[in-house]
Computed example of a mutant assay.
Amino acid sequence: MNEVMTMIRKKMSGFALSALLASAALSGFGTESAASAAAAGSAPNAAAACRTDNHGLALKAMKDTSDPYLGSIQFLSTNIGRAAGNGFMIGTSDAGCHWQSIYNTGKLNFTQMNFLSNSKGYVLAQVAYGKPNTLLKTTDGGASYTWIPTGQHPYDRIQFLNEQTGFGYTRAFTYKTTNGGKSWSKLPTPPNTRYAHFMTEQKGWAIVVLATGGYEVKRTLDGGKTWSDSLKVKTASNFGGMIHGTDSADVWVLLYGESGMSQTSYSVYHTADAGAHWKQVISRPTAGGGPAPGPVVPSGKLAGPAGRPTDMAVVGRQAAFLIAGSGALDALQFGRSLDDGKTWSNLPGAAPGYDGKLSFPSAKSGYLAVTSFERPAVYKTADSGKTWKKVFSLPASQ
């Protein structure tokens, strides 16, 4: 383990602040010091026409990968956001009309961004392609990074409530820090947990798989010390799922069934009253994946987007969005609820590709990063996903 830490430190030592700030040329990104402002330069010409190509950026791909592709997207507001991939991070301060480079060394493969402000944030990234994630912190908008040790537990996901308090998630376990990552403590979670999500330090939810088949969704109100059953779902097989929500009482749970023939069966459940009542919003069985988890529903009655769901975004107690894709489909499939789960609608294909990540800073304004190797691009919507417009694209992999 000491050898691994030494290797990472050596790699990180090459990310010199002076060199990287020069690439952060987009106004509004990075630290707010005079030195950083000078390095950032002037803002792009707002009068220039918006582009849909790579905006003239020669982005570096990480070693052992052929072409640049996208892996993560996060918008802090309708206008200000970032997209990142295998060796680079780009940013926009005008809703995607113009993009400029923030980080472009080819040394980090970004898998998740968790910015708390326009200058401070945490990211998960691989220091070598295909290796476990490393946790890093930035205080200059993403131009340079400090390594945050996590022991022998590389995280699949992170979630920071503020600069000091955050959670690190593996497939089965949850870890917590209250001092910005200087130390981590393992939180008690139910046996066979496959996904956990904390809305606050004390309130969280977990998806538990049962040895006999099926799922249990459990809730904690005391930081994981005790867990109570909230939802039980019968299914012949269980492969985990996702939990989303911005309110600990208003929660969306996606549960996967089996996959086959480029198809995945899944269900989506929603509660608006902290689990006292649950509503099955989506039940999508498939020929290749078999029945969807939960009660048998007449064909087409609770249909969701076709393909395997890859990401979900929830805005307050109002809107929820789901993106799904498949190698057998020509476009990512998109669906939404704008009334807190009372109704659900599937919309036309959002963008070419088979894998994607979402970021919705408001119920109307959202962004989609196509993260598949083919046709990587960023799209935006101003009408809650009804229509999408490309705002950035990379050359397709050959």
Rank of each mutant, 00 (worst) to 15 (best):
A128I: 02
S93M: 13
D94G: 03
I80V: 13
L26I: 14
K63C: 04
G130L: 00
G30A: 10
I90Q: 04
L76T: 02
G130R: 02
A46M: 12
D156Q: 15
G30M: 05
K131E: 15
L116E: 06
L26R: 11
K120A: 05
W99V: 13
G91K: 12
L124R: 03
H55C: 04
L136T: 04
A84T: 07
T31C: 14
F88S: 00
F167W: 12
N133A: 05
H98N: 12
L108R: 08
D156R: 14
F75W: 06
P154W: 02
L135D: 02
N45S: 13
T105H: 06
S72C: 14
E163N: 13
A128Q: 14
D140C: 04
G56A: 08
T65K: 15
N114M: 07
A49N: 10
A83F: 06
A83C: 04
T134D: 08
T165N: 15
D94L: 07
D67Q: 13
K63L: 10
N104T: 03
A143S: 13
Q100K: 14
T150P: 01
M113F: 09
A46Q: 11
N45G: 08
T150W: 00
A39L: 09
G81Q: 09
S66A: 13
Y129H: 15
K120E: 09
F160R: 02
Y155W: 05
N54G: 01
T65A: 14
M89D: 07
I90L: 06
V127G: 06
P149Q: 13
Q74T: 05
L124A: 03
D156N: 15
H153T: 09
G71R: 13
F160Q: 01
L26F: 03
A95H: 10
T65S: 15
N114H: 13
Y155P: 12
G166K: 12
L136V: 00
G121R: 06
N79H: 14
G81L: 10
E32R: 14
A84W: 00
S93R: 13
N45C: 10
D156W: 05
S27T: 09
A47F: 11
G96L: 05
G87K: 11
N162E: 06
L70C: 11
S119T: 11
C97H: 05
F110E: 07
I148W: 00
I73M: 06
A48R: 10
G166W: 15
W99C: 12
T138V: 01
A47S: 13
F110N: 07
Q159F: 15
F75L: 12
F160D: 00
T165F: 15
